[in-house]
Simulated assay, not measured.
Amino acid sequence: MLPTAGPFARRSTLLRRPAQAHGAGMEALAARTRPRLHRRADWLQFARFATVGASGYLVNLAAYTVLVRQAGWHYAVAATLSFLTAASWNYMWNRLWTFRRERGSVAVQGLRFLIVSVSVYAANLAVLTLLVAAGLGAITAQALAIVLVTPGNFLGNKWWSFRRAGTPGGRTARGRLVSAPR
């Protein structure tokens, strides 16, 4: 019998209804995303993020290519160093340009950016490893892996790393999402 009260009650509810628990999370994500797709300011911010990301993509691939082809490093080690180089580049430009109105503590935003970046890097490395194992060349596989993980990177940074300072979860007191002024 599963407990209905006490410290394990929430856990037992999730164990009994995992599909409903997962569906609620997806519904919350959809509710949070849907209204944002119609805002011009959000699309412009995504365009700035994509521009910074494209430059970071070039920095990443350039460093990766040099390390793999000229230095002869293993693709996973090269991916790690090129990731760190590109993440530093992207943080600087996203803070200065993309999310300039969401300025907060350099240390807090930097740590959050690093956490999002490491999470996205883990996904990138998993995709890269699968693509290389499937027979794609290391450079082509990295180029594709970066593209595939970019949406998660944007959402993580917009909704957490650079969220509007002073608002819990980037929300107003009424629960509306906060975005940069138009």
Rank of each mutant, 00 (worst) to 15 (best):
A63F: 08
T80C: 15
S119M: 08
W89L: 02
A141L: 06
W89K: 01
A76D: 04
V106R: 12
L114Q: 10
A87Q: 10
A126M: 06
A126D: 08
G104H: 02
F83E: 00
T85C: 14
V147D: 01
V68A: 02
V116W: 04
A62C: 15
A123N: 08
N90D: 08
A145Q: 05
V108Q: 12
A78T: 00
Q70I: 13
V108S: 12
V132Y: 02
L130C: 15
V147L: 15
L130D: 12
A122F: 10
T129D: 03
I146E: 01
I115T: 14
A126V: 08
L84G: 12
T140K: 10
M92N: 04
G135C: 07
S117I: 09
A138S: 14
S82N: 03
L96G: 14
A133R: 12
L131Y: 15
T129R: 03
A145E: 01
T85P: 00
T150I: 11
A71R: 00
W97Q: 00
L155T: 06
P151T: 04
L130A: 13
T129A: 14
A87M: 10
S82F: 00
Q142Y: 08
L96Q: 14
V147Y: 11
A76H: 13
S82R: 07
A62D: 08
A87V: 15
N94S: 13
A71Q: 03
T140D: 08
V116T: 06
A78P: 07
I139F: 09
V132N: 03
L111M: 11
Y121T: 00
A122H: 04
A145H: 02
G72R: 02
H74G: 11
I115Q: 13
R69S: 09
Y121D: 11
A145W: 11
L136P: 00
S117G: 15
A107H: 03
G137C: 13
S88P: 00
Y75Q: 09
I115D: 01
A78V: 05
I115E: 13
T85H: 04
T85K: 00
A133K: 06
V149K: 09
L125E: 02
V127A: 09
A123C: 14
H74D: 07
R69A: 04
L128T: 04
Q142R: 05
S119I: 09
Y64D: 07
V132R: 03
A78R: 00
E102Y: 12
Q109S: 11
V106F: 14
R112T: 03
S82K: 01
G72N: 01
N90G: 01
G72W: 08
L128F: 09
R103I: 10
L148P: 04
S105G: 12
G152V: 02
S117C: 15
P151E: 07
A62M: 13
G110I: 12
L84T: 12
Y75R: 01
N94Q: 14
I139N: 06
G137N: 08
L131K: 06
W89G: 08
L84Q: 03
A133L: 06
S82M: 00
Y75E: 11
